[in-house]
């Protein structure tokens, strides 16, 4: 619910589609720690041999915000999220997660940072030797969580991605879309406050890609999760920037388009080109940009 800015509180309440914003949630929204960015890049440089991958990249992801990272293949999009997880280290600059500087943390020190982050990989990156249940439960098994609690969480997460029936299947038995959804369920176990999506819809058919975007929207709007969504597909951009999720009177999640009643304030776009940020802002601003590279990217010409 925190994901929306009410244009007119009285009007939206009169429509009765939004849950009333409770005192607790309002307090949480305005508490000082919320002002702290979930992720912050400060002038980050990274090069592999002679190839500069990131060249002075700076940006912030606010709490509850989705940052869409656009760019061609090889523009450094996936590298960005690998840096957030500490899977790579920058040559220069600082990276902060929840206000903590993680730039030079060791592998062991990174473990508590990674516990706050869920990562959805391009192809799902499921463990081939483990069934869906154990894949999703992986993080909990690592923490020696009681099996009863593990089972409850796994079922809840598989229900969230609408894959309850696949609980005992092996990854090899799943379709590409199902693998990504299991990957999302695995990333969400333990309720991470930050989720990183690395081209989660690449190579998927449009309806499945849409389902993945809906899951990302649900996370943003219902769960108040901060996320980075790396993609080069314009359809994803459209869904994430123009639709929001709410819980209707029957308790079901429904998706509505941004309009007069509500506008989405918590999705921004960053565009990378040759390791530099060449655009940062809203979808409308991106589409209005006169930059030739951006126009070529948007129009696919």
């Amino acid at each position: 619910m925190l994901s929306f800015l009410r244009k007119n509180k009285t009007e939206s309440a009169a429509h009765g589609t939004l849950q009333p914003v409770t005192k607790d949630i309002e307090d949480a929204f305005f508490q000082p720690t919320r002002a702290l960015p979930a992720i912050e890049f400060r002038n980050v440089y990274l090069a592999f041999d002679d190839k500069v991958v990131l060249d002075g990249v700076s940006f912030k992801v606010r709490k509850g915000e989705t940052k869409i990272i656009l760019g061609r293949s090889g523009s450094g999009k996936s590298t960005l999220i690998r840096l957030v997880l500490g899977l790579l280290k920058p040559d220069q600059g600082e990276i902060l997660v929840d206000g903590e500087d993680i730039t030079y943390l060791s592998e062991a020190q990174m473990m508590h940072v990674r516990a706050k982050i869920g990562m959805v990989f391009q192809e799902g990156a499921l463990f081939d030797s483990l069934p869906v249940y154990d894949n999703v439960a992986y993080r909990l098994h690592e923490r020696d969580v009681d099996e009863e609690m593990v089972e409850e969480q796994v079922k809840r997460m598989l229900e969230f991605v609408d894959l309850e029936e696949a609980i005992h299947k092996m990854p090899a038995e799943l379709s590409g879309g199902m693998r990504r959804r299991v990957g999302i369920a695995r990333a969400l176990v333990g309720n991470p406050r930050i989720v990183l999506f690395d081209e989660p819809t690449a190579g998927l058919d449009p309806p499945t890609a849409r389902t993945i975007c809906e899951l990302a929207i649900k996370l943003r709007d219902i769960q108040d999760v901060s996320s980075i969504f790396v993609t080069h597909e314009m359809k994803n951009l459209e869904y994430l920037s123009s639709e929001y999720a709410i819980i209707d009177n029957e308790g079901k999640v429904v998706f509505e388009e941004e309009g007069e009643r509500l506008c989405i304030i918590n999705t921004e776009i960053i565009m990378l080109h040759e390791g530099k940020i060449i655009f940062s802002g809203k979808e409308e601003q991106l589409r209005a940009s006169r930059d030739r590279y951006i126009q070529r990217f948007l129009n696919g010409k």
Binding site: L87, R114, E123, R139
Partner: peptide
């Protein structure tokens, strides 16, 4: 190559 090692590290396993 299937990023399972990265996934393992991301999930907090050494």
């Amino acid at each position: 190559v299937s990023q399972q090692i990265d996934a393992m590290r991301a999930l907090g396993t050494d």
